[in-house]
Each structure stands twice: as C-alpha cells, then as structure tokens.
C-alpha cells in the first residue's frame, strides 16, 4: 500500500521540525456552498490536515458551540452523502491536503460500511474518526476502511489507562487524537501540565503522531501544545468564528484567525 497522505504530511513536517495544525469545521456550516471555500482558506492559512465534521442530530460529545453548528448544517439538510460530495469538490483543486471525516456512528450505520468506505475512497477522504465507535465495537467498519487505505483515527483521553493505550494502538493508524480534558468540545479548562505529563506516557504505547485537541482557543496555547505534541487540533474556536461572522466575511475571518495561530505555533 502507498504511504497515506496523512503519514506523508507528518513525515514532511518532522523533516522540517514543524508541527501539524489541524483545524476542525462542520460541513454545511454556515451553508453547503461555503464549506469548500472555507477548506481552501484553512489550507492557505497554514492548515496541514483538515477535520471535517459530519453533522449529527445528537452530538453527545460536543459542547454548545459545535452542537449549534450541527443544527445549522442540518437545517440545510447536510447529509453524510453531502459531506462526501464536498470532499470530492475540494479534491478538484487540492490533491495534497489530507481530509479526515469526524462524526458519530449512526449516519455511517445508516449508509452501510461498504457503501461508506467506497464513497470515502472515491471522494478522496484520508481518515475517519467516529466519536462513539470505540475499537471493540467497530471492527467491521475499520477493517473495511483499512482495506481501502483509509486511516482509522481514535481518541485517547485523560481517563485512558495504559492497557487501553495498547488496545487503541492495535487499531489506530494515521495519528491518535488526545482529548486534552475531561468534558465536551469547547470547554475552557485545559491543563497544560496534565497534557505534558500524559504525552510521553502515550508515546510508550502508541507509535503514531499524537494530536491534542479540546480546549485550545488561542495561539499561545497552540504554541505550548505544539512543543509537546505532534499536532494541534482546533475546533470550537473556529466554529465560534463562523457563527459570529457576517455572511461574506466567514472565509476572510477564519483565514486571519488560523493564520495567527499558525504563526504563533511556528514562532
């Protein structure tokens, strides 16, 4: 199998002594037409990998900001099929930046594993992260994805014990996503010391790049995280920017925000 886009990106960054910036936005927020321009603007502003949220009616692991973005996207009827179509559209002019779909199990259950994997391959999706599919419940999906060359991204959390890290390591590819706090997305109580203590522990068990997310809201925190992890994931802060921007200013505002975070990380 050829090296995945995700592995390629991390190898190139490592060679240059840089860390990955992974922004998250919800597909279809504020509307379907703006999603692809947003993705291109995130890349232009310094994103290395894109996480595209698949909206779900019951986002149990998300705080109010991302809940509202899902509600906006669902109001326009943004389906999993639409998300795949948006990735296809993005791929017409960007064949290099990895795209990870992030969401909940039921839209995938509804579409069926084989249909989803085939759709993801043909759209150019590189990784899939399903919040409520732990490895022991998702062997069916993940074997289909792995056979299609799509990376299976898993979460680790402050409550993950060492045995669990080994379990996750057996199934994970691409990178692992360390949830930096106990809570939902968008909470503001990230503990840098706790994260700094946990990363070396994870590295003992997991031989993949480690991204850190949940609770990273500014350049300064991103920079601190970039010193200890391989990737910084930012979601709620960007979604908040989309929510608060006037129509027509969304893309520009996001570009400025992400550009600032990129500069802080690299400084």
């Amino acid at each position: 199998m050829a090296t995945s886009r995700i592995a390629g990106v991390f190898a190139a960054l490592r060679a240059n002594g840089r860390k990955a910036l992974i922004p998250f936005v919800t597909a279809g927020d504020p509307d379907k037409a703006t999603t692809v321009p947003i993705l291109h603007c995130l890349v232009a502003a310094g994103a290395d990998i894109l996480e595209l949220g698949v909206p779900f009616s019951d986002p149990m692991a998300d705080g109010p900001t991302i809940q509202r973005s899902s509600e906006r996207a669902l109001k326009h009827g943004t389906s999993l099929r639409d998300c795949l179509a948006l990735v296809s559209e993005f791929r017409r002019t960007d064949n290099a930046t990895p795209v990870v779909l992030m969401g909940y199990a039921n839209p995938i259950e509804s579409m069926g594993y084989a249909a989803f994997a085939a759709g993801a391959v043909s759209a150019g999706v590189d990784g899939v992260l399903v919040v409520d599919y732990p490895p022991e419940e998702s062997a069916g999906l993940h074997s289909v994805l792995a056979a299609s060359g799509i990376d299976c991204i898993f979460l680790l959390s402050p409550t993950s014990v060492e045995q669990r890290m080994d379990d996750i390591a057996r199934f994970a590819s691409g990178y692992v996503y360390y949830v930096s706090l106990k809570g939902v997305t968008g909470a503001a109580n990230l503990d840098l010391d706790e994260v700094a203590a946990k990363i070396p522990q994870i590295r003992k068990h997991v031989d993949l790049p480690i991204g850190v997310g949940f609770g990273i809201r500014d350049g300064e925190t991103a920079r601190a995280i970039a010193r200890i992890a391989d990737a910084v994931v930012i979601g709620s802060r960007l979604v908040q920017e989309i929510e608060n921007s006037a129509p027509g200013e969304v893309v520009g505002n996001l570009g400025r925000l992400v550009g600032g975070i990129r500069r802080a990380m690299d400084s």
Binding site: E136, L155, S157
Partner: peptide, 12 residues
C-alpha cells in the same frame, strides 16, 4: 447493545 461511547467514558 454494546458500548458505543466516547473514549473518556470507557474507563468509568
């Protein structure tokens, strides 16, 4: 049935 939850709840 099963256990379909985010990682943070697995240990609990």
């Amino acid at each position: 049935g099963g256990v379909f939850v985010a990682e943070t709840l697995i240990h609990a």
